[in-house]
């Protein structure tokens, strides 16, 4: 049984559907990547899964139907790092991390996790007392990832983590995401425009096209298939 099972997901804005029945799965400990052009519905998928949009269709996490309230989704074990990072700018870095632990009650565990992510992202420790709005873009992205991980999710959703960041920062970030997956066993579902980078990380790839999953396969499949590569991946 897969960790995340999505069947016939439909969602959109107002009367118009952007997603016309998405099917995808993420196994435990797996890194899944969603590729697709602008407007294919990648961000809409992430928002619908996280409970930020009304949706229809079946979404199960660990076999249980997932609710549609953002905080319940987090409590069930799935956290989203939103596009644009969603930093709580007026709160300190440390407060941002504590907000990420909103669904947890174990004080000791929370304190340990703060230390763990400070070890992973040392720059956050240096700036723990500063307002999060003062961080650089890359630092805010690290904070967003760390905050989402504070809820100890089984599955971490990342919506275009590379957006607006310098290439060197992006490489470091993806290395860290890979390490988190390897060490903690946290499954990842990553939306990414930078296909090459994403394929290095991915176990499984879903290709999204106009609100539907057009192809699913392993990263190797996608690299090998010249037609798909030229058409969708651009290299």
């Amino acid at each position: 049984m897969s960790l995340l099972e999505v069947r016939g997901l439909r969602a959109g804005y107002g009367a118009a559907d952007v997603l016309h029945g998405i099917d995808l799965t993420v196994d435990e400990g797996e890194v899944a990547v969603v590729l697709g052009a602008n407007g294919a519905g990648k961000t809409t998928t992430m928002k619908a899964l996280a409970g930020m949009l009304p949706r229809r269709g079946e979404v199960r996490l660990g076999g249980a139907e997932l609710g549609t309230r953002p905080d319940r989704v987090v409590a069930a074990g799935m956290s989203l790092v939103p596009q644009g990072r969603g930093t709580l700018a007026t709160l300190s870095v440390l407060d941002n991390l504590h907000v990420g632990a909103a669904t947890r009650k174990d004080r000791k565990g929370i304190a340990e996790d703060v230390e763990r992510w400070f070890d992973t992202f040392p720059v956050l420790r240096e700036r723990s007392g500063q307002s999060a709005g003062l961080l650089s873009g890359g630092e805010q992205q690290m904070l967003a990832v760390a905050r989402a991980l504070m809820s100890r999710p089984q599955l971490l959703l990342c919506d275009e983590p590379s957006l607006g960041l310098a290439p060197i920062v992006v490489q470091g970030l993806f290395a860290t995401l890979g390490a988190i997956n390897a060490e903690q066993g946290t499954a990842l579902l990553v939306v990414e425009q930078n296909a090459e980078l994403a394929l290095d990380l991915a176990h499984r790839v879903h290709l999204l096209e106009v609100g539907e999953v057009a192809a699913t396969g392993t990263a190797e499949d996608f690299r090998r298939d010249d037609a798909v590569r030229r058409a969708y991946l651009g290299f």
């Binding site: 016309h20 096209e209 106009v210 609100g211 539907e212 057009a214 699913t216 396969g217």
Partner: peptide, 16 residues
């Protein structure tokens, strides 16, 4: 490749 890729892309019906 588990191809659903060949399936013709259904364009959404034009909404009135």
């Amino acid at each position: 490749m588990t191809a659903v890729a060949d399936r013709p892309t259904t364009t959404p019906a034009p909404r009135g």
